[in-house]
Nucleic acid binder design. Sequence first.
DNA 1: GTCTATATTAAGATAGAC
DNA 2: GTCTATCTTAATATAGAC
Lengths: 204, 204
Amino acid sequence: MTRPRAQTRIQQKNSEAILEAALEVFSQSGFRGATLDQIAEKAGLSKPNLLYYFPSKEAIHAALIAGLLKVWLDPLRELDAGGEPVEEILAYVRRKLQLSRDFPRESRLFANEILQGAPRILEAITGELKPLVDEKSAVIAKWMAEGRLAPLEPHHLIFSIWATTQHYADFDVQVRAVLGHEDDRHFSQAEEALVILYRRTLTP
Amino acid sequence: MTRPRAQTRIQQKNSEAILEAALEVFSQSGFRGATLDQIAEKAGLSKPNLLYYFPSKEAIHAALIAGLLKVWLDPLRELDAGGEPVEEILAYVRRKLQLSRDFPRESRLFANEILQGAPRILEAITGELKPLVDEKSAVIAKWMAEGRLAPLEPHHLIFSIWATTQHYADFDVQVRAVLGHEDDRHFSQAEEALVILYRRTLTP
DNA sequence: GTCTATATTAAGATAGAC
DNA sequence: GTCTATCTTAATATAGAC
């Protein structure tokens, strides 16, 4: 229903072009700010042809959002309760920062959605994200109780990791303006800084 | 030109009602997503009457944005080069978190603007924010060189403070969903966690 | 599958009475 | 100052030819 009917090669190709274009537009303008004209133009299709592949603007957006949460949560899923605590957290920070570098549009799509009250993904957040965060928070709390990690309220620790890493995607324009960078070299500086920050904070 | 012509008491009152309503709507939907109908409705005025006070949608948005950057930068301006380094930074973190608690809509208005490419405030960012950040980064770098603060690239330290504090306003919906909170008690937890985090990281 | 043409609604803005 | 009525444009979506 919210899925493209792609099957033939040409349908596959066009569906992908549409989703790629839609990601570009939705991530920059939010749902209401985006227009089918912009998406059609970027996808190289006419507007009616766009609506041959997806029944509505809603459906295009839904298709993008659907795949998003999984990608977004995978780095946290990988946090291994059996690993070395400090290194596990640092590896998580690195994975999350990499997402910001490699998928900034997805990050902004997500940010737009949350910022506007998360009308389309709130249930996924309470149903899927919250349990995962609670589970991993328990792991972190256990590490802290065992003295293998300096104590810090786990949920807020996780929030801080989300915030500091996603900032480089969501506030990209501002980061570049302040640093005066054209390229992406601030990502490795950011990684260095964040690793130092969390290592100092969390080493017992 | 972008300013309301408010002079009489009734004009004053209506202008304020409009800006209040506009803040609500723009901060939730972004510029393009917001409609004059919504703003008029919330302000308790008819749409034409709205446009009697402000010449256009652009003008209302501009009036909001105009006051924003100052409020946003004041906490950083107060960072005192003559103060005790660690305490100065922590006080800055607290001020910034307070802004998120007390003015979440302003934070989201700003976030929306940046997220969408900052078309209306990029020049203010390069012209006003960047110099201030550079100046305060120099102060922080000096503190670090003197051994009064543990070393950490100052720009990225500032980014991390922005990110972690603004997160509680911009991603409010997500924070509440994850914590299961109805009230604002997570703000004091957040303050505690962030103060611990930055104190550990920055104490030499 | 793709297009032109068009229906339909919503949105920004204005005219003009009161 | 405020309203009703309305103009104009833009946006989502559909019809129907090819």
